[in-house]
Design a binder for these strands. Structure first.
Length: 477
RNA sequence: GCCGAGGUGACAGAGUGGUUAAUGUGACCGCCUGCAGAGCGGUUUUCCGGGAGUUCGAAUCUUCCCCUCGGCACCA
């Protein structure tokens, strides 16, 4: 079985073969922190989180680097608007971002560098590009990448021609006076006294937008990456600029062997944007939906497709999620009463099949949607076996172990898998069991009024109980 | 204008040549149940944007057309 990935560079599915054995250097463009992160960021980082986790599952040795851009015009402008220091603003929203990712169960990158910690390296790389004749400083202290030096590589990722670019962008974009060529992009930008800046050979200034990723991917990853990822919107110009400057600097091609891009997230069929007023931050959505449901919702569509967010769709995802979550609850409950003697009832075979189909789906460009579909089939069979036959402890454990095994990749069933987790609030397990016991006595006496009253009481305390054939199961909601 | 993604049942969404087109949600019926919940079984009548072509065979390949969304030097 071979892992296949879609490569934006070739627009094809390719067998995944890292540059060096099983080692994978992976870089994903992080956010520019000028505001709370929105759902689009969640989509992107959850997608790459699962990709990264799956590579680990397939025994690749992954180094995952993802930056935080903490100096940028958008940050400066926003800081000006609300009258705070730009660095204060960026550090506040960088923390907000990390908090959001933690809540969404996104594994932290192995290295998460800040742009402002790498100014000397950035200046060094720009100097190198100037030395190689690929960039030029101007009178006012800007440095541009000289696109005419690499016309052959332009469009390698975006698949556009120089003519096409000139035509499309010319009328819309204000052309800086000091550029030699309209398509040149800025590496270093001179700062006015009231803007953040660092001393450089070209005067006080700050990095341009594309250079930081080239510097940090090389420093923490490798001169050549195996996977470079980000949203589709970054293909042009950001990733293309990275390719030009990185390859120009190192002389090595390709800068990254595979380029992977996640699709957009729309809201009620429209692109998220401030002007439409349909901009949802991760924090806003987390107020209404649990993080695992948001993750599940995102993984329920292939990462390259557009995904449409709406309250209705998330609620639907929540109900779908419950099916599998309930299966896990059913398993744990069944385990309590299960016999020790061998009575597998085909569960081991089901697990084996489920694992095979999980790998088959994920190997095909990380098809989480298909993987989840297979999981539903598996869950249904497991439920059927449990209620029909009463399998033994060992085989039930095997199923639970399988769920935790794949949850190392999906990261959605953490809450259900947690065993004996101490809950700070609400009644203790003993109190709950005692109330359930009381209720069982009432039920035996057919005192339904009292039984229902106890059930209501428990419900008020956040305990949901269900009567099953072999006893009462309960869980905290 | 250039470049890209897409159009599959009520909704969501897999499937890139081969038996009755996954899976989930919703709806309905049944089993189970004191009720509720969960679960299981079943149903949801021609679901593959349109035309032409290739093929023994097309959702899948070719071509033309229609429509939607996005990128084009701000963006995950």
């Amino acid at each position: 079985m071979v892992l296949r990935v879609y490569n934006t560079l070739t627009r094809q599915m390719e067998d995944f073969v890292p540059l060096h054995d099983m080692k994978v250097n992976m870089y994903v463009c992080g956010p520019t922190v000028y505001d709370h992160c929105h759902l689009g960021h969640a989509r992107s980082y959850i997608s790459f989180d699962v990709i990264r986790r799956y590579l680990g599952y397939r025994k690749y040795d992954v180094r995952y680097v993802s930056n935080i851009t903490d100096v940028d015009d958008k940050i400066i402008n926003r800081a000006r608007e609300i009258g705070v220091d730009p660095f204060e603003l960026s550090s506040r929203f960088a923390l907000s971002f990390i908090e959001d990712m933690d809540r969404l169960n996104v594994v932290r990158p192995d290295i998460q560098p800040l742009v402002t910690d790498h100014i000397p390296e950035i200046i060094g790389m720009i100097e190198g590009l100037i030395d190689r004749g690929l960039a030029y400083p101007t009178q006012v202290g800007n440095v541009y990448y000289d696109l005419t030096s690499s016309l052959g590589r332009v469009g390698i990722l975006s698949h556009q021609t120089v003519e096409g670019l000139l035509e499309g962008s010319g009328s819309r974009v204000e052309v800086e006076e000091d550029k030699n060529y309209r398509l040149d992009f800025v590496l270093w930008k001179s700062s006015s006294p009231d803007e953040p800046g660092w001393e450089s050979p070209w005067g006080r200034g700050r990095p341009g937008w594309h250079i930081e990723c080239s510097v940090m991917s090389r420093k923490y990853g490798s001169q050549q990456l195996d996977i470079h990822g980000g949203g589709v919107d970054l293909i042009f110009p950001h990733h293309e600029a990275e390719i030009l400057q990185s390859e120009g600097y190192t002389g090595l091609q390709p800068f990254s062997k595979y380029w992977m891009h996640n699709g957009f997230l729309t809201i009620d069929q429209e692109k998220m944007s401030k002007s439409l007023g349909n901009f949802f931050t991760i924090k806003q959505v987390l107020e209404e939906f649990p993080p695992e449901v948001i993750r599940f919702f995102i993984l329920n569509t292939h990462y390259r497709n557009t995904i449409d967010f709406s309250e209705k769709h998330l609620e639907e995802a929540g109900r779908a999620y419950e099916r599998i979550a309930n299966t896990i609850v059913n398993l744990k409950f069944a385990l309590k009463e299960a016999p020790d003697k061998d009575s597998d009832h085909g569960l081991s075979e089901q697990v084996r099949q489920a694992r095979d189909s999980f790998i088959t789906s994920m190997d095909e460009d990380f098809n989480t949607r298909e993987a989840l579909a297979n999981l539903f089939v598996f869950a249904r069979r497991v439920n059927a076996i449990i209620s029909a036959n009463g399998p033994d402890k060992k085989s039930l454990r095997k199923v639970l172990d399988f769920f935790s095994e794949i949850d190392e990749v999906l990261g959605v069933f953490r809450k259900e898998m947690a065993v004996g987790e101490k809950i700070a609030e609400g009644p203790s397990d003993e109190e709950i069991e005692e109330l359930i016991h009381q209720r069982e006595k009432s039920r035996k006496a057919k005192d339904w009024a009292r039984a229902d009253a106890i059930r209501d009481e428990l419900q008020d305390k956040g305990i949901f109980i269900e009567d099953g054939k072999e006893g009462v199961r309960w869980r905290r909601t």
